[in-house]
Design a protein around this nucleic acid. Structure first.
Length: 432
RNA sequence: GCGGUAGUGGUGAAGUGGUUAACACACCGGAUUGUGGCUCCGGCACGCGUGGGUUCGACCCCCACCUACCGCCCCA
């Protein structure tokens, strides 16, 4: 094979594309109800947009950025996630302005890029659907975003989901906790895995997230962030939980849950699936949280924000594993069988007329014999065929055949041109 | 970035150092001068991921690379 797609990319073929389109269209419906409006930002941004916001030591920045220098020697990055670009656009276009109602609620969908080893459900170009809401500190908004994430997944037919919740607190909580955590971990430093040793001082919270069995043992007795929250942070988290309870939305507090991105604070959450698509292991399909300092960090006014991102490929994998097919079957209404080259124009006129009347219509373009054309019609699941040959041409008629029962009747071309629905009725009547 | 497994036609695949690379499905054509099924007949890999090497001879052995899948890391 001479040409092949770049590593970690995928061709989405017609069969699959309909499923994608269905997911996107269901998402749009949900967003409409929640009043989130679409934004489309560039697929690449200045490297700094991501390096500043994600955290210089984050894995995304240190090893997963798909970056390059363009011909103007600008350091460019293919966006690894959606939030930073949206925030950049929010600031650059002054969407924080007084004339814009708050919270400003927006969604996006599109490709993201991370330079990493592909596996199923993990690609170098993958797709996310995400939302962001700016301008309100209210825990009620956190909860709206959570419910939106759940609603989105439910709208495509998923029910076996788990909502995992945690808080990172505000800056002060985090600083206090960080110190406590380092103090706890340092005595164990020698026992920690290499990765965790590395993170101990750079980003100790990430140690909590370690998959290493021994690390987990150590971490099991580590202090909890929940014990270091400031009263304000506690209050925020408590309210989030209360509102979720009020909505009867079950959740699990996982005080070890952290974020690979540095910009999060307060509420963070993940929606996980235990679908067989991932071998029954709980896998995150949707992750989000609050990021109150981010807008400021990118040069805007102090503006709180909260949002989530959802991995489309993962969602599609789950749908496939659960046997959920969102495609509406659009079978062919009419297949026009033309016999002889001299019927070419007439066949075109027929399909054209049918299409203009709102029917789906197709015909042969390979000079197939009638038998082959009927086969094609059958394969396309055509409801009717319309056969036209020399004889019909002369009589200004065409043979309309109901493919389900084989009944056939000659119908005036004029009738088909003006009202095919009536032609269907005529055939149905003759059948009885 | 590290470790493991794999790579034969449109698809599923057999083959395993030595004649024309099984078989099946799909597809195309014919038997059937204008009607979907079945049956029968026929066609269908410029050649076994790419490039080197070993050998009298390689799809089969060796090396490198590419790609996919799985695990690690991390995450959506």
């Amino acid at each position: 094979m001479k040409y092949q797609r770049p590593k970690g990319t995928a061709d989405i073929l017609p069969n699959e594309a309909t499923q994608w389109a269905a997911v996107e269209s269901l998402a749009r419906e949900v967003f409409k109800k929640y009043r989130y409006q679409e934004m489309r930002t560039p697929m690449f941004e200045s490297f700094d947009v991501f390096s500043r916001t994600s955290g210089e030591t984050s894995d995304i920045v240190t090893k997963e950025m798909y970056d390059f220098f363009d011909k103007g020697n600008r350091h460019i990055t293919l966006r690894p996630e959606g939030t930073a670009g949206i925030v950049r656009a929010y600031v650059e276009n002054k969407l924080y302005g007084p004339e814009i109602q708050k919270p400003f609620k927006t969604f996006y969908m599109g490709p993201m890029f991370r330079y990493e080893r592909p596996q199923s459900g993990r690609l170098r170009q993958f797709h996310q659907i995400g939302v962001e809401a700016f301008g309100s500190d209210s825990p009620a908004l956190d909860v709206e975003v959570v419910t939106l994430a759940m609603a989105l997944l439910q709208s495509v037919g998923l029910n076996s989901l788990k909502l995992s919740l945690n808080t990172l607190g505000d800056n002060e909580s985090r600083q206090n906790y960080r110190q406590a955590l380092i103090a706890y971990l340092e005595p164990h430093e020698a026992e920690l895995s290499a990765d965790s040793k590395e993170r101990l001082h750079k980003n100790p919270l990430r140690v909590l997230d370690s998959k290493d069995a021994n690390d987990q043992k150590i971490v099991a007795d580590a202090p909890s962030i929940l014990d270091y929250l400031t009263p304000a942070a506690t209050e925020h988290f408590t309210q989030v939980k209360e509102y979720l309870d009020a909505l009867n939305i079950p959740y699990e507090v996982d005080s070890n849950m952290v974020r690979g991105l540095d910009y999060y604070n307060h509420t963070i959450f993940e929606v996980m699936s235990d679908s067989k698509a991932f071998g029954g292991k709980w896998t995150t399909v949707c992750a989000g949280g609050r990021y109150n300092g981010l807008v400021e960090q990118l040069g805007g006014p102090e503006t709180p924000g909260v949002g989530f991102g959802l991995g489309v490929e993962r969602l599609l994998l789950i749908l496939a594993a659960e046997g959920i097919d969102l495609n509406e079957q659009h079978d062919l209404d009419v297949y026009v069988v033309g016999i002889g080259a001299e019927t070419n124009a007439a066949s075109l006129k027929l399909v054209q007329a049918l299409r203009q009347q709102g029917f789906s219509a197709d015909r042969d373009y390979l000079d197939k014999k009638p038998k082959g054309q009927f086969k094609a019609a059958s394969k396309a699941n055509a409801a009717y065929t319309l056969t036209i040959g020399q004889e019909e041409l002369e009589q200004h008629k065409a043979n309309l055949k109901n493919m389900a029962n084989g009944h056939q009747e000659a119908i005036d071309l004029e009738q088909i041109y003006t009202d095919f629905g009536q032609a269907e009725a005529i055939l149905a009547e003759k059948e009885n």
